[in-house]
């Protein structure tokens, strides 16, 4: 039996941008960027679900983000996660990777006992690969990054295969530890139809608050209890739910790195020599390349 916690993130789909991402006023046009489940985090969840299937235990998922990240948490439930937590608070806004890791490390402790913490190697919006190792450091856990496969779990022993530059290595060690997972390791499973039917009604505190405003028959507390009893409650964790939180470590204030300047990518443009896509055009290009000794 192994209890695992998977750190997941909802990210803008930076790979599929349909138009101009920056508005003319220099802000990011989020409507151009649909929010998706970060692919490598999905791989991490798949690895955790396989541990559960093989050895038993539970899989909890946590995400730090705005309320709409609950869409992704529901997807985690559709895939097979047992419990989902949304870590959301305005005080966390503007966090760099260090401030994010600080909150995540506190949230992991809040979720409870665990044997392995999983995360994707990196998220496609920042591509930093820093949050996994930084969370491990804050939790005083050893780390295995770029993991491809857990080869064996036996008591508190783990054998894990990880990518290294130019190859791979197998690490052997003791639990607990934090594992970051690389893409294409696991082929994440599709959503289970049965679980989707059931968990599409899973709700966060904010969702339930909206309902209780509309429906005065039940109090907020009663509604929350009802969702909890049906196992359809996505627990929302705010700064108030985390113990020993140092306010100086949160958000923009707790972030050593600051964005000084953001520029839209502007290209000088159009100074190239245009070559006709014809026999003559290409022949003259080849002549030029041969004369300059670039070809031949």
């Amino acid at each position: 039996m192994y209890n695992t916690i998977v750190m997941v993130k909802q990210v803008p789909d930076t790979a599929n941008i349909s138009g101009k991402v920056m508005k003319d006023d220099g802000t990011v046009n989020r409507s151009m960027l649909p929010a998706i489940f970060n692919h490598e985090d999905k791989e991490a969840l798949e690895m955790a679900l396989r541990v559960k299937e093989k050895y038993g235990g539970t899989v909890s998922v946590i995400t730090m983000g705005p309320p709409r990240a609950s869409d992704m948490l529901r997807e985690c439930l559709y895939m097979g996660a047992d419990k989902a937590y949304l870590i959301s608070d305005r005080k966390f806004a503007g966090s760099d990777t260090l401030a994010t890791s600080y909150v995540l490390s506190k949230a992991v402790k809040r979720v409870g006992e665990f044997d392995i913490v999983f995360a994707g190697r990196q998220a496609i919006d920042g591509d930093t690969a820093q949050v996994g190792p930084q969370t491990a450091e804050k939790l005083n856990l050893p780390q295995a990054t770029y993991a491809e496969e857990i080869l064996e779990l036996d008591g508190d022993k783990i054998k894990i295969k990880c990518a290294i530059d130019g190859g791979y290595e197998v690490l052997e060690g003791k639990l607990p530890l934090l594992v970051t997972v690389v893409k294409d390791s696991n082929q994440p499973r599709p959503f289970s139809a049965k679980r989707t039917m059931r968990f599409k009604n899973a709700k966060t505190l904010l969702d339930i608050q909206k309902m209780s405003d509309e429906n005065s028959l039940l109090t907020l507390q009663e509604l929350v209890e009802e969702y909890k009893s049906k196992n359809l409650y996505i627990e929302t964790i705010t700064s108030e739910d985390l113990t020993n939180l140092d306010a100086a470590m949160l958000g923009l204030h707790g972030s050593p790195t600051k964005v000084h300047k953001v520029e839209s990518v502007v290209l000088a443009g159009g100074k190239y020599e245009k070559i006709e896509a014809s026999k003559d055009g290409i022949a003259s290009l080849i002549d030029e390349l041969l004369n300059d000794h670039i070809l031949g």
Binding site: D96, T97, L98, S101, G126, D127, T128, A129, Q130, V131, G132, P133, Q134, A136, E137, K138, Q143, T145, Y146, A163, I164, D165, P256, T257
Partner: peptide
């Protein structure tokens, strides 16, 4: 892979800024 595993750990412990 080595640097991206090591640097964040060192930066976290020493409360340093780190940009990837």
């Amino acid at each position: 892979i080595i640097g991206r595993g090591l640097a964040p750990r060192v930066a976290s412990n020493t409360v340093s800024g780190l940009t990837a």
